[in-house]
Design a protein around this nucleic acid. Structure first.
Lengths: 157, 157
DNA sequence: TTCGATGCAAATAGTTTGCATTCTA
DNA sequence: TAGAATGCAAACTATTTGCATCGAA
């Protein structure tokens, strides 16, 4: 059950057609705006704001409105295709949901690094046992300072 | 060195006068708006948005503008008296910096629970060793689902 | 009497919504 | 051709900024 008719996306990352098929299964229609957005999401790989994604889409289709980007990102998030991460202040960032992972967000330079689930697996388990709280790895974002900013701060001031 | 002239606030929680003294040490002036904000922060205890704090302040001084609340919260944050937590979407929340702790933010009902530093101490250490990234415990917010919402979702649908 | 603090208005960033129109299935 | 998707404008939320005035030290 991994063909275009499947409810579940392949574990090694979905193709554009997989995602569009998933959309159709849920009553959605295939449009060029959606196809482009998904392509851009796959090409960029990393964490992008809605505006950055819009910029990429615009280079190929200038008429796609930012509103449409937001609406389609919402839909893709509901379907579990993309994950939204809030990096403190500034815009939310979107990326394809692949393997579960968390994020390190540097307060100083804005860098977003990914950490594999294994690193915080213990925490997630402990929190569930002790607090009955189920952490969503996809949204996990730890704020702090990256190496370079720590170093700069130590040297500069 | 824990008197009004000290740079460091008492470990068991500052008093209103402690905070005002700290402000004065840093060139700030004592105003009724600041005193009230600090009082409200201490009375409420939990995590409040700027608007909620303004509401509390207004009940005693309706003329204090929301802008002033923001400006004073900024200043208190710079001094390390309050910590700001971004709970995903919605407004940032502010609370007194006491013992280091993280937050569990329920995506469904918005509940914010505190967890002692010990729970995620291992994570913070691992992340520092493996990624050179220093997590700020004060800003640590894990998104997910609290017990009651998980239960409701399981029952309801 | 100086300079920080405030009130007010307005700007800003990011995101959402309403509605008429367009286009897919 | 019904209903989903879009473009556009406008609203909206949270926050910041500019500027004249006020008030603490």
């Amino acid at each position: 059950m991994t063909g275009p008719g499947s409810e579940v996306l392949p574990a090694d990352g979905p193709t554009v057609e997989n995602v569009l098929a998933l959309l159709r299964e849920h009553g959605g229609r295939t449009t060029s705006a959606k196809r482009l957005l998904v392509e851009v999401l796959m090409a960029s790989g990393g964490h992008r704001s809605a505006e950055q994604l819009a910029g990429q889409v615009h280079s190929r289709a200038p008429d796609v409105h930012l509103t449409t980007i937001y609406r389609n990102l919402d839909e893709l998030e509901r379907l579990g295709v993309v994950a939204r991460t809030y990096a403190g202040h500034g815009p939310a960032t979107y990326h394809l949901s692949t393997a579960p992972h968390g994020h390190l967000v540097c307060d100083a330079c804005g860098l977003i690094a990914e950490v594999p689930a294994a690193v915080f697996g213990g925490l997630v388990g402990a929190v569930r046992e002790q607090y009955g709280f189920t952490v969503s790895p996809e949204h996990l974002a730890l704020a702090g300072r990256c190496v370079s900013c720590i170093r700069e701060e130590a040297e500069g001031g």
